[in-house]
């Protein structure tokens, strides 16, 4: 019934952990979708290294392209190249991590392949139907893709990263001649610039510990004074509620929730966050949840394993001190 193509997302050749989660989902799909092999494609600088690495994860055949068209991620050329690779590698389905670029490009791939798409998949049923969250995670839908070609984006928190497995050895450059429109890139505009947050802490999406701050912090200064040291005492990534982001206490890409990042660390500590349903959508699958809030009736306590009803400005610094003490 055709192969499954994995879109290998990487940064300068370093494969994202989420790509391995997407691969785990692809492995689950293999039997019910009667796929013969899992194949892959990597694009951009470092693509060759990333593609090679994936041969160690059971992929039988991989394509890469480091063509200038792919130097910086853009939806249009990426989608075209992924569709091209699918055709070349006889893939009838495409699986990718639901990162911002996965979400951005994969629907375009679906149109190019006339495929049906399911976004943000969190489970695979034995009959090949898929489970995905709707309504901010309040409802889980069981969906069936009705087209013979299929596209799936995968929520990384729902699948443990795939482990090493004997694969193939076929790694070669993706030929681009098959799609003349790929070279019409000027039609799709250009990158003007980036404003990336400093990456001196673990990546939020796959950190083992996350400390998040909410509106209660009251200012960017307080956020920095209270949340940063607590996070650093644990080697944690920092998250935030939408209210904290909207008020300018934390950068946009720290937002956790329905419309931000979905995280599922071993330990999630929320500080001064009420626990609105849209926030819970992004963290309620964390293994252990700690909530610090001065309101004993805050909804966050309904999902927290351990709740501390207290003023955060007193207890968060105290916690930071104690954790530092443990470390040293």
């Amino acid at each position: 019934m055709g192969n499954i193509l994995l879109f290998i997302q990487h940064v300068d050749g370093k494969v994202l952990k989420g790509t391995l989660s997407a691969l785990a989902a692809a492995r689950e799909l293999k039997v019910p979708w009667q796929a013969e092999q899992i194949v892959g494609v990597a694009l951009g600088s470092g693509a060759q290294v990333a593609a090679k690495e994936m041969l160690g994860y059971g992929l039988t055949s991989v394509r890469y392209s480091e063509n200038g068209l792919f130097e910086k991620y853009r939806a249009e050329p990426y989608a075209r190249a992924i569709a091209l690779a699918a055709k070349e590698l006889s893939a009838t389905s495409v699986v990718a991590l639901a990162s911002s670029s996965g979400k951005d490009a994969l629907p375009r791939v679906a149109v190019l392949l006339e495929a049906a798409q399911a976004s943000d998949v969190i489970g695979v049923n034995p009959d090949g139907s898929l489970r995905r969250p709707m309504y901010a995670g309040n409802i889980i839908a069981e969906v069936e893709l009705l087209a013979p070609t299929r596209v799936v984006t995968v929520r990384s928190t729902a699948f443990s990263p795939a482990t090493l497995e004997v694969g193939g050895s076929e790694c070669s450059e993706l030929g681009l001649a098959g799609d003349p429109e790929l070279h019409e890139q000027p039609r799709f505009g250009e990158i003007v610039g980036y404003e990336m947050s400093k990456a001196d802490r673990p990546e939020l999406s796959d950190a083992a510990v996350v400390v998040s701050g909410g509106r209660a912090l009251g200012s960017a200064e307080n956020f920095e004074k209270v949340v940063y040291p607590l996070a650093d005492s644990l080697g944690a990534a920092i998250g935030a509620s939408r209210a904290a982001v909207d008020s300018g206490y934390a950068p946009n890409d720290w937002q956790v929730g329905q419309t931000g990042k979905v995280v599922a660390p071993n330990l999630y500590i929320s500080v001064g966050i009420s626990g609105a349903i849209q926030h819970l959508a992004g963290m309620k699958d964390s293994k252990v949840i700690v909530a610090i809030n001065k309101d004993p009736d805050a909804p966050i306590f309904e999902v927290a394993d351990y709740g501390l009803v207290a003023d955060l400005f007193t207890v968060a610094p105290e916690l930071t001190e104690k954790l530092r003490g443990l470390r040293s």
Partner: peptide, 25 residues
């Protein structure tokens, strides 16, 4: 192209407990 077969509510997470102090936490 996508058929929604069935909807269900996810199993709710159980509320844990309150701790009395930072030390207990």
């Amino acid at each position: 192209k996508v058929k929604v077969r069935k909807l269900s509510t996810p199993s709710a997470r159980k509320a844990g407990r309150k701790v009395a102090s930072v030390q207990e936490l």
